[in-house]
Amino acid sequence: MTMEATRYDDGTITYPGHPRGPDGAEPVETIDLSEYTAEVVTWTTSTATPPGVREPNHLAIVEFDVSEASDDASSSRTQSGDDGASVRAIGQLTTGDVETGDEVRPVYVDELREPGAGIREPESQAWDGYRFEPL
């Protein structure tokens, strides 16, 4: 299992990937964010959770710095500016005991919420993934 972000031909990176990136750029490669650490941009503890979701549900928007990966990826490096080296993600936290600015790392979880309990067709998407754990 990887936490796949997509790099586009203009050097930008998004998580998740899309058929076209910012400014219509085409996807060129994927980057496994699970090998990086990230910083908490903002976080919340949600107490009114939908069917199949843990309660309370600690959530954060985090920012990865993948400039190292940009250096390695010589093919698209030329167009990659500073902005292209950072990529945000949203995900569950392992704990509600965090602050904005904390450093976190992704830890793998088999099932982030119970497939079949909510409205989403279970077959239509993945249910495993990563939580963010403070370092």
Binding site: A48, P50, N57, Q92, L112, R113, R120, Q125, A126, W127
Partner: peptide, 11 residues
């Protein structure tokens, strides 16, 4: 799907 999987809600 990536957001939904994390149990993200509008609130």
């Amino acid at each position: 799907p990536v957001e939904y999987n994390a149990g993200v809600t509008l609130p």
